[in-house]
Each structure stands twice: as structure tokens, then as C-alpha cells.
Design a protein around this nucleic acid. Structure first.
Lengths: 335, 335
DNA sequence: GTGAAAGCGCTAACAA
DNA sequence: TTGTTAGCGCTTTCAC
């Protein structure tokens, strides 16, 4: 059996209250007893039982993280940001990989409730009405990271995807491009799909006076293969595009592979702009020019926001927008 | 306040023991009371407090995962395997990103002890004497995943890196290569550095009768930049190599980039063999031929092993070796 | 400054 | 089958 507070009390010849005081408010304990207790703690290798503590204090210093797919580059960088910020404030993370499965999601919410987490960070996936309903019942502080929702008024940390889409096109326009296509995420993806597309559309309209964009846009699922086939379709319809804005780095690489196989060179024959600035953007050939999300920072800020929430502080702003920026590498050229 | 077992008892007009029984051993409760209790639970939205349960049962259904860098591709895939297996058996994961910082590591071990985790999975990094000493004091079940140690007799799940190194060279030999270089990890890396190098060395000796290999080997830190500069040095010393075996996919990509910049084409002018089969291997240009570690499976098996351990079962084998295999893509050609 | 005692929410004897 | 009670390890009054 592991030593308990009783064992420490016995060994040092004081009451358990005094031991407790040494751990929580050492200043109010006489120096002599404090030393004796500290010595006993060391000797026994005692550590307090966080379950017992949590049972009383109603705090577990643990938060749940709901994430669609931890193995994905982008998600794991976000988790790292959460973890680093958590570590600094003494918060542990319980990772829940939902696989985008609502049932699994609901199950995790129940587990987290039972484990008495101090809060929950929900990431990446659109926060549906169903989730909002369940979460409301649980009355646990909740922060959205790198996603958003219209189903409730929830604290959120993210970039402004519509603006990012706009800026991406603006960048290409500045580089002299006028025939700009897009490989978008699904339009029913309210997080990284539709908003980026809308930004693209607005930029084409406001900057180039172009309106009928449908033929210049194709769709993928943010993955490599999706980018490949989208580029294939797009190229057959619109062989004269000089640049394509892709809603993810992976799709950008898929597009590049297709073009490469067709004998077209990036960026000499056609420019490709990615999105996310994942690790692969730095190590691909050519290196990807891309719209960077400060994803690690989003993680950090989300955790800080959650901390404020659990501390009962007033939030300065409900939604925090972090700045995206364009990282210039080798996949876009001036024309 | 959240409803407790008392509230349920009161509402359904039974004792708290009966409520407890409904949750744990429903069969021994009369149908009538069971129904009443279940109804009350639903009405109140009651869930049991896992802290209180854990305090008595001495089980938290939570395990700690110590990981050097969660944002890394390889690590997050491993975590996914752990998480999936954990989810199936009702185990939650507390993720601890150690940043390879011994202090942080020691701190996490203390936290996990306090939180009364049922076990710990230690991943990727070599398990040092110091860690072994601390862990031994904590008396918590511990499994190593994708790493090993000579500091203690610990349950382990991994591939056989020496054999994998051997097989990599053997594969290249079968493809007709005789002038084979290597970009190895650091030799003092006892996990993914030295063993793979030793496999390479043995294969060169046994298969090709070559012994003086020093000039043909260079070293990197498993990262892209490390692969780039290692290839640079290697190429200047040994321009006649027909194939280079890299101890990680990232280093392989770094090497390819260097060669590309020198005007050499992979695989036409020189073949490159990677290691890990990370996501980037599938989406690089050319697609990487690589030694695949079943990293997701390693995660799953490690969690299963830990479950057996905490259940007090006898382990069939201390170290479980999972099979590596070579994934043929486009970066190696026959000569 | 210190100790005794109550109690956090639950499970597990023990009686009935 | 059910209820009463002790107690898991700790914090926090409340006296002294």
C-alpha cells in the first residue's frame, strides 16, 4: 500500500490536519513541526491522493480534449499548444479521439463528466446542435479551438477563415495572377470549407470583377487524394488557370502530384497556394507557399481561455481571432 | 450542484446502496426498484462521480502516456493506437508531452502518481536509468512502446530495429545495389539510431562482404534539415553511391531535396530508402519507398499489454516484436 | 498553532 | 432483496 496522510502523521508525531497544512498552507505551521513533517514525507515517498483532494475541492486540474483525429498533423500541433499551456498552469489533458463519430463523442462527454474534468476543449470539427444540447446539460466550461458554431454562444479561438481566403487570393493577384482557381473543402463544412470559399469568391469579385466562378472551383476532402482528383477535374475544365488556391496543404500536394504527372511544373507552369502551413509544407518539393494558421498558438490561447473560465473570470472577448499570414516559399511565382 | 447518489436515492425512495447496486450489479436488484432508480437517474441526469469511485476501488481507468513530442507524425499515430485500444476497454489517456526534458518528465511522473493512474505508457525515447529508478519507486505498471531499455526488465512493444536495418539493405541488394550508403540517426540514440546502423553494417558485411563502412555513413537527427546536410556531406565524400538508406522518412526527404538541387534525380540517378512510413512518405515527390513500422499497431498492443498487467495477468512475453515491412513506392529502382 | 471531527460521493461488508 | 454503516484519503471548520 502507498503511504497516506495518516502514515505521515504517525511518523512525524502530528495530526493529519497538520500534515495537510504543511502541504497547503505551510506558513501557518510552526517551523519545527513543518520540518518534521517534510522529513517524514520524504522518507515515506508520500504524495497526496488527487482523487481524495478533488472529491473535496471540486477541482481536478484536468481538462478533456475532444479531437476528431489526433494522428493528423494539424491536430497534433494544436494538442501540443494545449498541452504546453496546460503544463504551465498545472493542468493535465485527457485526450479523446472522436473519429468524427457522434456516438463516440457523446460517450466521451459522459466519461469526462464522470471524471469531473474542470473543462473541455472542443477542436477542429463543427460543433453541432446536438453537441451543444448535451454540453449545456453538463454545465462544464467549454472552449472551441480552431472551429466555431452557430448552435450556441461559446468561447472560441480561431483564425478568420473568410479573411484568410480573401487574403490568399489577394496575394495571388499581387503576384500578377488573374486566372485563379480554387480547390475548396466541402461547402457543407462550416469550419474550413465554406468560409474559405466565400473569401475566395469575395476577392475574385472585389479585386478582379469576376463573378461566375463555378467552373473554376472544385472540391476535395482536405486530403491528398482529394486534391489530386480535384485538380484533375479542374485542369480538364480550365487548362488556362495560372494559379490554384487550395484549402489545405495536403490537397495542394495532391494537386502538384497530378500536375507533375501531366508534365506541368510548379510554379513555372502553374502556381499553387496551400493552406495550414503543416510540416509537409516545408519539406515538399517544391516547398509550399501557404496560408499559415498559428495552430500551436490557437492551442495555447484556447487553454488560457479555459483557465480564465474555470477561474470564474470575465472573458474579455467571446471569440478570439488569431492572425493568419502567408508564408512565401517556392510554389507560387510572379507573372 | 450536480446530483449525487443521495439525490437519486431520495427521488426513487430507496437507499443509496440500492442505487449503487443498480449501477454496478443490476441483476441483484428487484425489477421494480431497478426501474424506479433508472427513472430517477434519467430524470436528474445523474452520473456517478469517478473520483469517489476511484477512491474506493483503487482504479481510475486512466493511464498516463509519456511522449517526447506529440506534434510529431510518428508519435501522434502511436497515440491514436493507444487511444483506440483504450477506448475499447474504457481507459482514458492523460497525455504528457515531455519535450525530452528530464525535469518535465519527473514532474509528470509525480502528477500521474497523484492522479492514481492505473498505468503508464512510455514512448519513443530511451528509458534511462534515472527514469527506471523513479518509476520503480512509484510501483505503477509501466509499458514501453516503440522504445526499449537496458535499465530494467520492462514490458515492451516495438519492432526489431536491427533486423529492420538489415532487411532494408537486403532489399537494396536484391534491387542490384552494391554501393549503399546510410544516413543514420545518432549512434548514441539506442532506440532508432544505433540498432538500425548495426543492421546496416551487418547486412553490408554478410551480404556484400564489405567492412570499412565509415565513409559511407553520415548522421542526422531524424529531421528534414539533418537529412539534407548529411546527404550533402555524404555526396561530397561518396559521389558514386547508387542507394542511400535513411533512418527516417524526414531525413530521406531532406536527402532528396539536396540531390534535387544538385540536379540528381531520384530514383533514376540514385535510390533513396526511407524509414517509418509516415504520412509524408505517401505524398512526397517521388513517393517514398520505406521501411514501415506498424506504429498504430504498436500503440494498440502496448495498451493491451498494459491492460493485462493492471489486470494482474501473467505476460506471455516481456518484449513483443511487431513485424516491420518494406513498402515499395517510387524512390528506389532496380539496377 | 494544533487536533478532533465532519464530510466530499461512493462501495462493500454486515445485518436484517 | 434491501438498508445501515464504516471508511477510501483528504480538507476544513471548530474548539482549544
Amino acid at each position: 500500500m502507498r503511504p497516506t496522510i495518516k502514515d505521515v502523521a504517525k511518523l512525524s508525531g502530528v495530526s493529519i490536519s497538520t500534515v495537510s497544512r504543511v502541504m497547503n498552507t505551510p506558513d501557518i505551521v510552526s517551523e519545527e513541526k513543518r520540518k518534521r513533517v517534510e522529513e517524514a514525507i520524504r522518507e515515506l515517498g508520500y504524495s497526496p491522493n488527487a482523487l481524495a483532494r478533488g472529491l473535496i475541492s471540486k477541482q481536478t486540474h484536468t481538462v478533456g480534449v475532444l479531437i476528431p483525429d489526433i494522428s493528423n498533423n494539424y491536430a497534433s500541433e494544436l494538442v501540443k499548444g494545449l498541452e504546453d499551456a496546460g503544463h504551465q498552469t498545472g493542468i493535465s489533458l485527457i485526450i479523446c479521439n472522436t473519429d468524427r463519430d457522434p456516438e463516440r463523442m457523446v460517450h466521451y462527454l459522459e466519461i469526462l463528466k464522470q471524471k469531473q474534468v474542470d473543462g473541455i476543449v472542443f477542436t477542429s470539427e463543427y460543433f453541432s446542435e446536438e453537441y451543444a444540447r448535451i454540453a449545456a446539460k453538463h454545465r462544464v466550461p467549454l472552449v472551441l479551438a480552431a472551429t466555431h458554431t452557430t448552435a450556441a454562444e461559446l468561447p472560441t479561438v480561431k483564425i478568420n477563415d473568410e479573411e484568410a481566403g480573401f487574403d490568399a487570393v489577394q496575394y495571388l493577384v499581387k503576384k500578377g495572377h488573374r486566372e485563379i482557381g480554387m480547390i475548396s473543402g466541402p461547402k457543407d463544412d462550416l469550419v474550413a470549407g465554406l468560409p474559405r470559399y466565400l473569401g475566395y469568391e469575395r476577392a475574385c469579385r472585389e479585386l478582379l470583377g469576376q463573378t461566375d466562378l463555378e467552373e473554376r472551383v472544385d472540391y476535395g476532402d482536405f486530403r491528398y487524394e482529394g486534391g489530386y482528383t480535384a485538380m484533375q477535374r479542374l485542369y480538364h475544365r480550365q487548362p488556362d488557370l495560372t494559379a490554384v488556391f487550395c484549402a489545405s496543404d495536403e490537397m495542394a500536394l495532391g494537386a502538384i502530384t497530378f500536375l507533375h504527372e501531366r508534365g506541368l511544373r510548379v510554379p513555372d507552369d502553374i502556381s499553387i497556394l496551400g493552406f495550414d502551413n503543416t510540416k509537409i509544407a516545408k519539406i515538399s518539393l517544391p516547398k509550399l507557399t501557404t496560408v499559415a494558421q498559428p495552430i500551436y498558438q490557437i492551442g495555447r490561447e484556447a487553454m488560457k481561455k479555459l483557465n480564465r473560465l474555470t477561474a470564474g473570470e470575465e472573458l474579455i472577448e467571446l471569440t478570439t481571432y488569431l492572425r493568419h499570414r502567408i508564408i512565401e516559399r517556392d510554389s507560387v511565382k510572379s507573372i
